[in-house]
Design a protein around this nucleic acid. Structure first.
Lengths: 192, 192
DNA sequence: CGATTCGGAATGAACGTTCATTCCTTTTTA
DNA sequence: TAAAAAGGAATGAACGTTCATTCCGAATCG
């Protein structure tokens, strides 16, 4: 196995175990054995568990942003741009349940608070700047309600994360139509 | 200190520490010392940590439901009933940040999934049946969008929990007006 | 009524387990 | 064959839980 492959195996194993069992249900020894790697080997690639966790988080966020940029065209009217981004995000979560559960674990942990602060205050560069820019534009163009950005975020991300979780846990079966209705309902909530 | 007082002290200490540091940041020894009680004493009142955690959860839920029932009058029109319940819930979270953070910890843990399943499938008797009944009524009377209950729940609870968290973490200052605007935006999202 | 006994509540040191991390040996690579 | 990588047993810290002991107010006795 090449060096890159081994790192990938470790990351994949960590993603699976943490998504399924949480940080405390994913001991390093278990990650190592799931990755077919010695316990000590992980420490050749990651300084410690914290670093593994946060690097995995960064990987995931980059992927999501890349996936969203694809569906994104600046030419369209505002509402369509929002619907595209919204359905795109929800799709991504539904088709990558491990990623979604990992993000939930991360956000509901001490790690998550700092990251959240960055996101909201706009310090983060990588981060959900697509949404930040879009929402900001919507406010200044008086398309969206004149509420603090944080509130608009809540009105969008709140439901999206919630239905994604319900779908993944099997409490509801989201098909194409239901996804659209959900994002449109979010739109009704934030639009002026 | 009387027997009841001692139990209360333990519960209070557990609430504080778990709300602030999560389940894993609140070892029994720490809970005991914060409650001015010996480590072994806790086990005279609670069989083990799990029992302490779930009993505390039940206490909290009862309190919330009691607080919400107060503000609730079946005579009002549907929209007003919703707004009352919504603002009431948000108020309660904002004025009881420890309770809110405890609930978040609980829901984002293995404990939470079972409880969530009960809530959504309607097995739970104690639980947010006020909301369940109201939303069901709204659907059959064609006041609310004809979407699965789970989705409507997401469109309401999602934003409420999200803004409550942002307020408590200091990312936004929710005043009376902002609370109303938020709940009204939720209304826009779920109404037909 | 004061002294003594008694029982259960409280205690916290000790135990066994689990985990992240380290360290030294073995294997692979160049 | 020398250097780098991998392996996994060893380590020590932290945790939930237990249990032999202490403590204290009530009951009993002389």
């Amino acid at each position: 196995m090449s060096k890159i492959d081994k790192r990938d195996e470790i990351v994949r194993a960590a993603l699976e175990l943490i998504a399924e069992n949480g940080f405390h249900g994913a001991p390093m020894a278990m990650i190592a054995s799931r990755a077919n790697v010695g316990a000590g080997t992980i420490y050749r690639y990651f300084e410690n568990k914290d670093v593994l966790i946060t690097e995995l988080y960064r990987d995931i966020e980059e992927n999501i942003m890349a996936a969203l940029q694809e569906k994104y065209s600046v030419g369209e009217p505002f509402r369509e741009r929002f619907l595209h981004l919204g359905t795109g995000l929800l799709h991504h979560f539904i088709h990558n349940p491990l990623v979604f559960r990992y993000l939930e674990q991360f956000h509901n942990s001490p790690y998550g608070v700092a990251s959240r602060r960055d996101k909201i205050l706009g310090t983060a560069t990588s981060d959900c700047n697509v949404f930040r820019e879009l929402f900001q534009l919507g406010i200044t163009q008086q398309i969206l309600k004149d509420l603090p950005l944080v509130i608009l975020f809540a009105l969008f991300f709140g439901p999206v994360l919630s239905v994604a979780r319900d779908h993944i846990l099997g409490f509801v079966e989201l098909d194409e139509a239901l996804i659209h209705h959900t994002i449109e309902a979010c739109w009704d909530g934030i639009k002026r």
